[in-house]
Design a binder for these strands. Structure first.
Lengths: 187, 187
DNA sequence: ATTATCTATAGATCTATAGATAATGC
DNA sequence: ATTATCTATAGATCTATAGATAATGC
């Protein structure tokens, strides 16, 4: 059953990708090693030839999930006529709200990262800073652009956290809509 | 070692109070029954005379934590000259940021409640609605007061989630300050 | 007699490791 | 010969239960 080194590297990446989705959906503590390996098409025994510990995988998967957010922002906005609108519309969309596994790790993992170690919190901060740089640029870089960017990002993250947690889709829609309107009026 | 019924009711409340602090600090999954009981000054064996299951305690503790937020808002604002400022200043304070165990459960448990059952998500929604009613009232109840209240609450929750998760106190302070300024300009 | 709490433990689950298997690459 | 993955399991931890203990309240 042994595979080549190239195959092993692909396997490693597949485990990380599966884990980065699972942690956004279930949190950092919930997905078991065996479950992640099964989802990656493997048994749990080989896990420790890829990672020193479960914590190592979780850290790598968290970093991967956060980096994916940054790539996604650039894909959405690099060629957009209105990059701020493109970013905000995605962030507040029902699809993003309903698919945390494929969405922003800053919104999906905030509470978990707070309780995590330095590596997790540092990666989280770096993605927050990248978001702020992007939103500041979208806003045109005026005098209070950074303050506006912080307000906008906080409102976006809060809106997604609230919209996902409440058990009322009409309220979730109302929150997303109101925050979208509010951010539109910031510039 | 047996105690009276009145004592038992007090014990029950003490377990719930301890649990409501632990879950805000550590999340819904982390604190073990034995750990909560130890923190309440008991052994784990008696737990199931108080609660049908661990999930029952977590649900009761979540409801208790959310209700505590509502009481706290009223204590802060009922006699305040500027209720909105009193609420926002508390919410964005370094003390609130640094003591999640005693703070707002909407910010501390958003990601966890999303993954939780109907009872948790319903209690969460009710507290979100109570927050919105209060903030709407603080804003004077104008035409777009509800939309402003949603924007303000989202920004507050997002700011606390971000400020707690990043590993840079200067950035955390900057986030809190910027969101406070931004909300001040809403009215 | 009842019952609130305690000690002890069964059963389940999870991380991590040991040793076997089989394909790679010298 | 090396090593990527597999099967099997040790050791730790957690929920939930069983039975013992001792204070309450009829």
């Amino acid at each position: 059953m042994r595979q080549s080194r190239e195959e092993k590297a692909k396997t490693h990446e597949r485990i990380v990708r599966v884990a980065s989705q699972r942690i956004r959906e279930q949190g950092l503590d919930q997905p078991a090693v065996a479950e992640i390996m099964r989802a990656a098409g493997l048994t749990h025994g080989g896990f420790y030839k890829h990672f020193g510990s479960r914590d190592d995988l979780i850290a790598e998967a968290t970093e991967s999930a956060l980096a994916a957010s940054d790539r996604h922002v650039h894909e959405l906005t690099d060629d957009a006529a209105d990059p701020l609108a493109a970013f905000v519309d995605w962030y507040l969309s029902a699809q993003h709200r309903d698919e945390p596994a494929a969405g922003c790790a800053v919104a999906a993992l905030g509470d978990d990262v707070r309780r995590g170690d330095e590596r997790l919190r540092s990666a989280y901060r770096r993605q927050v800073e990248r978001y702020l740089e992007n939103v500041e640029r979208f806003l045109g870089g005026g005098e209070d652009a950074r303050q506006c960017a912080i307000l906008a990002l906080s409102a976006l993250v809060g809106a997604v956290v609230l919209a996902r947690a409440v058990d009322d889709e009409a309220l979730a829609d109302e929150i997303s809509h109101a925050v979208g309107e509010g951010i539109g009026e910031l510039r």
